[in-house]
Amino acid sequence: MADRLMLLDTASLYFRAFYGVPDTIKRDDGTPVNAVRGLLDMIARLTTEFEATHLIACWDDNWRPTWRVALVPSYKAQRVAKAVKNGPDVEEVPEGLVAQIPLIRHVLEVAGVAIVGAEDHEADDVIGTYAARANSAVDVVTGDRDLFQLVDDEHEVRVIYTARGMKNLELVTDEVIVAKYKVLPSQYVDYATLRGDASDGLPGVAGIGEKTAATLLAEYGTLESIRDAAQDADSGLSASVRSKIAAAGDYLDVAPTVVTVVPDLDLASPAEVGAGLAPVGGDARDELERLSKDWNLGGSVTRLLAAFDSYA
């Protein structure tokens, strides 16, 4: 089997698991375990179906990095539950999910899944760095469109998109992005910058939506070229669009840096973090089975163990 590295946008997946699996699934003491179960089932299915040989659970060491907020203060501001002085802001997370995150991390560690984060960076940046450095095919598993910028058929990087649920997974390639958005993956950062993204607190350029952004990029190629044309009355760009681009100048100076995932973090290699998939044995297997019983994780642990056993 040829090597295939699977990179999980872990928070995206456990949020999806939390909302996709009934919260009536609980431990005896009433602690919900639906997100834990759902995530383990996702991993068992994904690694098997897409024939991953290596797996990294990429982690948000800071879901709202200070350097991104310094550039665009509204970045993810609507998700802040509590601002912390001299520390990372606390994200608004359902109470029932907060209680499960430490267990999610512990179960993944016991199962031998590599977990990697980076100080003051998001999981997206960890994913971007591993995708850029990979010497094999890469599958990025996420429900966020931000990571479409990484899609690259030539280098065998694709996205397994979970936004429509695990029953409707979408395999995103160059062709899919061109068909859906009318831009190339290499233009996706400029496209996202222009149209904005309310879910991330990115305002975009007022008056320029998805269709106009795609049309402009089809004609001019890059945001930089669009901005150059906006400063030239003879460029052929309409006065209305030139005015809108000019008015958004301060935002356009910084937004591409915010939108672009970091490709060059100083991270240990997949081999160094133990990303290779293998059966869980010995004390670790005993501990997983104990956790399964104590935390009512049921068949989810069984299915994960069976999936990993196939790598013997």
Rank of each mutant, 00 (worst) to 15 (best):
Leu223Thr: 03
Ala131Phe: 04
Arg79Val: 08
Val141Arg: 01
Ile56Pro: 01
Trp59Glu: 07
Thr215Arg: 14
Cys58Asp: 04
Glu49Met: 11
Leu39His: 01
Ala214Asn: 11
Val280Ser: 05
Ala123Ser: 08
Ile43Tyr: 00
Val176Cys: 07
Leu55Met: 08
Leu237His: 10
Arg16Met: 06
Lys85Val: 15
Thr212Tyr: 04
Thr53Gly: 02
Glu272His: 08
Leu55His: 05
Asp29Ile: 03
Val189Ile: 13
Ala163His: 09
Asn34Leu: 02
Asp286Cys: 10
Ala275Leu: 05
Val189Pro: 00
Glu156Gly: 07
Ser235Ile: 08
Leu39Tyr: 01
Leu169Ala: 02
Leu277Asn: 08
Leu291Gly: 03
Gly299His: 10
Lys293Ala: 15
Pro185Val: 08
Arg227Thr: 07
Ile115Tyr: 03
Ala99Gly: 12
Arg27Trp: 00
Met42Tyr: 10
Ala275Phe: 05
Arg64Gly: 06
Ala70Ser: 15
Pro65Leu: 02
Gln149Thr: 09
Asp29Met: 04
Leu40Phe: 00
Ile25Thr: 10
Ala2Trp: 12
Tyr188His: 05
Val93Ile: 15
Ala2Arg: 15
Cys58Phe: 01
Ala131Asn: 05
Glu95Tyr: 11
Glu272Arg: 12
Asp89Ser: 10
Glu51Val: 13
Glu119Cys: 12
Asp286Lys: 14
Met1Ser: 15
Ala284Gly: 07
Ala246Ser: 15
Asp153Ala: 14
Pro270Ile: 13
Val183Ser: 04
Tyr130Glu: 02
Glu95Arg: 14
Ile104Thr: 08
Arg145Val: 12
Arg37Glu: 03
Met42Phe: 11
Ala206Ile: 13
Leu103Thr: 13
Gly209Tyr: 07
Ile177Cys: 01
Tyr188Ser: 02
Val90Gly: 04
Leu216Pro: 01
Phe15Ala: 07
Asp23Thr: 11
Asp190Asn: 07
Glu287Thr: 14
